[in-house]
Every structure is written in structure tokens, then in C-alpha cells.
Nucleic acid binder design. Structure first.
Lengths: 203, 203
DNA sequence: CCTTGTTTTAAACACTTGTTTAAAATGCTT
DNA sequence: AAGCATTTTAAACAAGTGTTTAAAACAAGG
């Protein structure tokens, strides 16, 4: 069976790009094929159906997404440092892949959207031991008493939303894309300071 | 010309519900008509086209959205109080209309998505005088030195994202809808405290 | 009643959708 | 070169899309 470079990969990459920016409903099989420079029939020849191909792309994105979480938490810095570094990395990651948050959220909310076993991703994050680390820190009085499930939500809110809301904010505050990007660099520092200050209050 | 109750409104309401939950690409004219219990042709009879009808719904949602901002900032409380109240109101509002943030963001990012004059909404917010109020507070050392455009972004991030990410969080943390909603109540208080503490540091 | 204008309907329009087919092109082994 | 499976193509398929049409149903006033 063939090299997985060439055609199959070309379609997969094109699909990724198109799906990420337009979503499942927002694009057509022919659009993906054209973006790959290949015949429409090849999409189904290699991936059986549009949905099947989408599932592949979606799970890839989800994995990439979760991995970027796991990476930092696995290191052996202090919890406070980890948090700050994670926010840094997250902003860097999102600068390169700004469509991922919107993509995941949207397709997660579509009916018959997500058919993935949840435990996989949960386990991956839990396996870094970051949760136990938090509990310890809380018991030692070094970390604010807060439900552990709120922490990812706090971080993700402040990292993901700004990227997703770029167009909306540009509209509401009538600013250009450059202005927004420039402002985002400052915003990022506020976010890091605010979250760390809140989660690790000074005595 | 007829009563604007009955058919026209029935279609408009159905369209709102369907558009909000599925987006422009995610639904069909026939689906809207069926939801309204009327014939397909009536959609175009009253609204000329699917796009036209969508534009109406979209601008309505946007207005509702901006108004919920303006309402609080127009009151005559202290800035610190306004902020806290606003977050409260926003969470209440979003509990009733959880689809609006996703809807606005998505359709804002669609190509040929937003064809609305931006200045309208910007002016509406600016006209509350909240910006001048912030500048004053910053000069008096009562408010953190931060670009004013970051403040709405901070607030919206922490109010809107949690609602949008409900399904994603349920999945990642393998929790039920009830668990999530319960957690959201606690989360909301953290958000209010964190934002106020950060924007109005004690001395 | 008939006439007028408005509202509603079923049917059709042209076009796009995802998917399949059957034939053509290509590559590889013998 | 011949035979083979694999890959690619253009064409077709049925179903669904937004929109239009032309006729029917309705309401109101003369």
C-alpha cells in the first residue's frame, strides 16, 4: 500500500485548512478537493466520506490541543512557574493556530458533533499529576482554595477567547487587525499577571 | 399592511431560534419554515431571502448584546461597583441566552459575515462615558494602568467563554451538564473577585 | 355578488450537495 | 511485453439547496 505522502496527505492537509477555517457545515467536498488540487472522487476514495475525513481532522486538532496542555504541566517547575509558562506557551501556540479554539468549540456544539471517548483526553491531562500538585499546594496554603475544574476554565477563557473574538473586538472597538495584534501582546501580560496573582495570592 | 404578529413574527422567531443554535450554514430555509409551521415560500415572501432574514436576526442579537453592556455602565455607581454588577448581570443574561456569544463570534468570522457599520455599536458603548470615567480613575491611582481596550476583552473572556465552552469542558473533564452548571456558579464568583481585584488593586 | 389587494399554497426552477460508477491512466512484477 | 492491482478521472446519481412562479384562498369594501 502506497506512500502516505502525495495525494492522500495533500487532501488531508487541504481538509485540515478548510475545515479549521470554515467548519464542517461551512465547506463542501469539492472545495476541499480543489484546495488539494485533486479530483472530488479522491476525497471519498481515500477517506470514505466527508464526515469520516472530518472526524480525523477533528481528533487531530483535539489531540494537538490537549497535548499543548500536557506538555507544560509535565515539567518539574513550581506550580506558579508552570502556570505562567503555560500561559506564555498557549499564547504562542494560538498565534500560530488561531482557528483551533473556535473550531473545537463550534464542532463540539454541533448536533452529532463529538463522538470521541472523553476519558482519553481527561486521563492525558490527569496523568501529569498536576491535579495532585494543586491539592498539595492548596493544603499548604500556597494556592487559593478553588475547585480544580475552574482553573483550566480560567486559563482557557483568558487565552482562547481573545483569539476567537478578534473580529468581534475589531468591530466593536473599530480597530485594525494590526492594532488588535499589538494590543494582544499587552493583554497577554495582564492575563498572566492577573491569573497568577489570583491563584497564588501573596500570603 | 398587516398585523406584524402572526405569520411574519412566527417566522422571525423560528429563524432566531434556528439560526442561533445552528448558525447560517448549519440550517436550511425549509428547516426555518417548518419550525415556524409555515410554508417555505413565506420565508422569502416576508424576508426576500435567507441572507436577508439572517442579517435581521444577527443585528438584533448584536444589539441585544451591546445593550446589555450599555445598561450597567450608564448607571451612577462607582466604577468598581459597576464592574461587579456588570459581571453579575452578564452571567444572568448568558444563562438565559447561552447561544449568543458563540453565534456572534462564528458569524463574525464567516466570510461575508458581518456587513454592519461598526461605529454604531462603538458609539453606543462610548456614549455611556465609561471610558472617560476609567481614565479619571486611572489618573487618580484608583484603577490599574491598562489599555482601556483590554478591559472589555478581560470581562468578555471570563463571562462568555465559560458559556461557549460548556460542551468542551464537559467532555475534557468528563462531567455532566448539571455538574458544570453547578460549578459555573462558583466560577462566576471567582471571576468577579479576580477581575475586580486586578483592575482595582488595594492601595 | 364581484372586485381588489393581500396572504398562502404546491409545484417547479436551476443549481449544489455528498457519493458512486465505470472507464481510463498509472505503476509494478513477472 | 503482458497482466495485475492501484490510482485517477469525468460523468452521473439521487437528494437537498435557495428561490420563483402561478394559481388558489382569503379578507374587505363597494
Amino acid at each position: 500500500m502506497g506512500k502516505d505522502s502525495s495525494t492522500e496527505e495533500k487532501i488531508r492537509n487541504a481538509a485540515r485548512q478548510v475545515f479549521l477555517s470554515k467548519g464542517f457545515d461551512g465547506c463542501t467536498s469539492r472545495e476541499i478537493a480543489k484546495a488539494a488540487g485533486e479530483n472530488v472522487a479522491l476525497v471519498n476514495y481515500y477517506f470514505r466520506s466527508k464526515s469520516q475525513l472530518f472526524k480525523l481532522i477533528f481528533e487531530d486538532a483535539m489531540e494537538e490541543f490537549v497535548n499543548s496542555m500536557v506538555l507544560v504541566f509535565g515539567s518539574d517547575r513550581s506550580l506558579k512557574e508552570k502556570m505562567a509558562i503555560f500561559i506564555e506557551k498557549e499564547y504562542d501556540f494560538l498565534a500560530k493556530h488561531p482557528e483551533i479554539p473556535s473550531f473545537l468549540l463550534n464542532e463540539m456544539n454541533r448536533e452529532d458533533g463529538c463522538s470521541i471517548p472523553p476519558n482519553v483526553h481527561f486521563e492525558k491531562i490527569a496523568s501529569t499529576g498536576v491535579f495532585e500538585e494543586c491539592i498539595k499546594a492548596q493544603q499548604a496554603g500556597k494556592m487559593r482554595e478553588i475547585d480544580l475544574r475552574s482553573i483550566p476554565l480560567l486559563i482557557m477563557s483568558n487565552c482562547h477567547y481573545p483569539v476567537m473574538a478578534k473580529n468581534l473586538m475589531m468591530h466593536l472597538q473599530s480597530m485594525s487587525a494590526d492594532e488588535f495584534d499589538q494590543n494582544l501582546k499587552l493583554h497577554r501580560e495582564h492575563v498572566a499577571r492577573m491569573l497568577v496573582d489570583y491563584l497564588f495570592p501573596e500570603n
